[in-house]
């Protein structure tokens, strides 16, 4: 018997390699359902969950929605702008109300780090973190790892370069927590204003020169530059960012010839990543999206699939 011995998926930091392997193996198997003509299995029939997004998202929200539908679960989606949160309802009340309507899981994205952890303690239902502030985005970390594993076989000794606004990035953090557990050599690179202090203590190499990170890299993961950060004076202009840290085919020549080029999306083409790179032969960006559905199916199956039998 497999099965995760936890009620919630809140972050990769506290998960073991056995748990991560289980999720990745399950995702690999369930991926077939999303890519075959009849995209449906009856496994989670009668289970329901809500996606509760306090921040905008298309990709993650729809990915979770489809993942559940393929497994015959019922999903309802709440985007905060149209909900009672506008009337001042607290997070705890919102979730408690949904739980007593019979919801089995809450998928939550929230601007405050730790919000899903708070909710997980209040609810009997499972809580799945779809991004909490700058803290973690575990399903993104897992789908990135799945993509790497499918193409490279394993993580040990791989040089993985994460490029961009590391400071604000929950995607970077989840990737770091996940990959370092398996002995990958993780590098983060970006402008000094966007590199968190003390990040080396997580077991990664930190540099403000993108070339250093790209040298001999097996995997290049490019993060989206959030243009709001420019308004805070964290980088002077988009053009300057692109000139010094933009990932393009010339810079990618420093990486291994069979490197993987990844991006969590949505891309700012021409800013952090050039169109030529994004659409090039090494890009696995679209595979990441398919793997995202598979990983979310795996998590829903593992958390909701069984019964309450002790």
């Amino acid at each position: 018997m497999a099965g995760l011995k936890r009620k919630d998926i809140l972050g990769l930091r506290e998960m073991s390699t056995e748990e991560i392997d289980l999720i990745l193996d399950t995702a690999d198997t369930l991926k077939d359902i999303a890519t075959r003509p009849i995209k449906k299995v009856p496994t989670l029939r009668g289970k329901s969950y809500v996606t509760l997004f306090y921040e905008n998202s298309t990709r993650t929200a729809k990915s979770f929605e489809l993942a559940g539908k393929y497994l015959s679960a019922d999903a309802i989606n709440i985007s905060v702008s149209t909900s009672s949160v506008q009337k001042g309802e607290t997070l705890k009340d919102t979730a408690r109300n949904l739980e007593v309507m019979g919801i089995d899981a809450v998928v939550m994205r929230h601007p405050a780090g730790g919000a899903p952890h708070f909710l997980a303690k209040q609810l009997k239902a499972s809580v799945i973190n779809a991004g909490d502030g700058m803290h973690e985005h575990p399903t993104q970390g897992l789908l990135d790892m799945l993509t790497i594993r499918q193409n490279k076989g394993s993580f040990k000794g791989l040089k993985v370069a994460i490029i961009g606004d590391i400071f604000h990035s929950r995607v970077a953090r989840s990737n770091v927590f996940g990959l370092t557990k398996y002995g990958a050599e993780v590098w983060v690179a970006g402008p000094t204003t966007l590199l968190p202090a003390g990040f080396e203590e997580l077991g990664v190499k930190v540099t403000n020169r993108v070339e250093e990170a790209l040298e001999g890299a097996d995997v290049v993961n490019v993060l989206r530059l959030q243009l709001e950060r420019q308004e805070k004076g964290l980088f002077p202009t988009v053009a300057e960012y692109s000139k010094f840290w933009g990932v393009n085919p010339q810079r990618l020549k420093l990486a291994k010839p069979d490197h993987l080029l990844m991006h969590p999306g949505p891309m700012n083409r021409g800013v952090e990543i050039s169109t030529a790179a994004a659409d090039g032969a090494q890009s696995v960006i679209l595979e990441q999206v398919t793997n995202g559905v598979a990983v979310r199916m795996a998590i829903l199956y593992l958390l909701l699939g069984g019964g309450d039998a002790a």
């Binding site: 496994t43 069984g306 019964g307």
Partner: peptide
Amino acid sequence: LDITLYRDDLTELSAVPQVHRS
């Protein structure tokens, strides 16, 4: 054929079985 996803008794198990490919 792996029939794990189609079993009628999944909710009677405390832990879900490992799925394999069909």
